[in-house]
Design a binder for these strands. Sequence first.
DNA 1: TATTCGTGGCA
DNA 2: TTGCCAAGAAT
Length: 361
Amino acid sequence: MEVEWKVEKNLSDQICKQLLGWYDQNHRDLPWRNTKDPYHIWVSEIMLQQTRVDTVIPYYERFMEKFPTIQTLAHADEESVIKAWEGLGYYSRARNLHGAAKEVTAKYDGQVPQHPDDISTLRGVGPYTAGAILSIAYNLKAPAVDGNVMRVFSRLFALHDDIARPATRRLMERVAMKLIPDDRPGDFNQALMELGAMICTPKSPRCLACPLHHQCKAFDQDLVLKLPVKQKAKKVKLVRTVFTWIEYKGQVLMEKRPTKGLLAGMWGFPTLTYSKTITPQHVVNTFCEEQGIAFQHMKMCGTLNHIFTHRRWDGVIMQVYVNKLPVLNDPNLKWIDIDSIEDLALPTVYKKVSQLVELGV
DNA sequence: TATTCGTGGCA
DNA sequence: TTGCCAAGAAT
């Protein structure tokens, strides 16, 4: 249900003043807050998508050291970019960022576009990220509505719209536009997010320390813990998984995953699915037959559970000892030296496989 | 519009 | 353990 939107100018001014005053005194000193370089802001915003600040900081520092300018990123090999992203998750973010850096270099002479219609065409730059870059780097009046902002607005104005719905984000953007002050759009957007991260948290919000609690409808009506409204997440689907470690004379078999879907385009150990009726041994046998891999024996050398957002790989590690080198027909399969596994950008789940096998050896 | 994309932290 | 959550975007 959409409410009629009328924020009185008086109230709007008060909110801005309180919020910016609080932000000026209390904001964290984060690496990307010491710059207005659009490229730096861009990288930080992509990394921060669905990812905690504490997690991002070391990745951001290393990334900017390795790719200090948009040109260095544009001219880098994709593998090195993915490697710099290793362990951060949502790897398509890195591919999109790399591709978009190439486009900005080629089409915009290396300057991150300042027009909403242009910046929004860049891969990986959606409504939030576009608004964040435009407002923070260029001080343009654009909404940057993330989960923090939706939570703050839900409470501040007692909005019961489900924040899981895309339409709600668009509503929040209209609200934001009415509030953003002409002189400090970037600071205002960041202040909203900072408030959501430090004070107006999902659980145990610190309302008495909030600079806006006198204006907060949810606080006034004791609705703080009921807001925001958010649809419940679906249950995680369990997938019985066989992680293979197929070894031949100091080498191990690696597989490049399909270009779409989970861990798209990433290297890993061939990963199979078993069931209650089809055993891990059986699926390994079938896989090896299909690939023409003759082996002496295999053994189960450990178990592993890994939880993704909406899937759970729950299963065993099967170690296979190959006795003669087969010709590989599948271009997505290759042998690599065990010592050089660390040169590949491995998703965390495969890092775990590698570590568990090493322990068993 | 609803689903799909990683990972780690926390109650 | 389980579920929720974190500066979202693509499909």
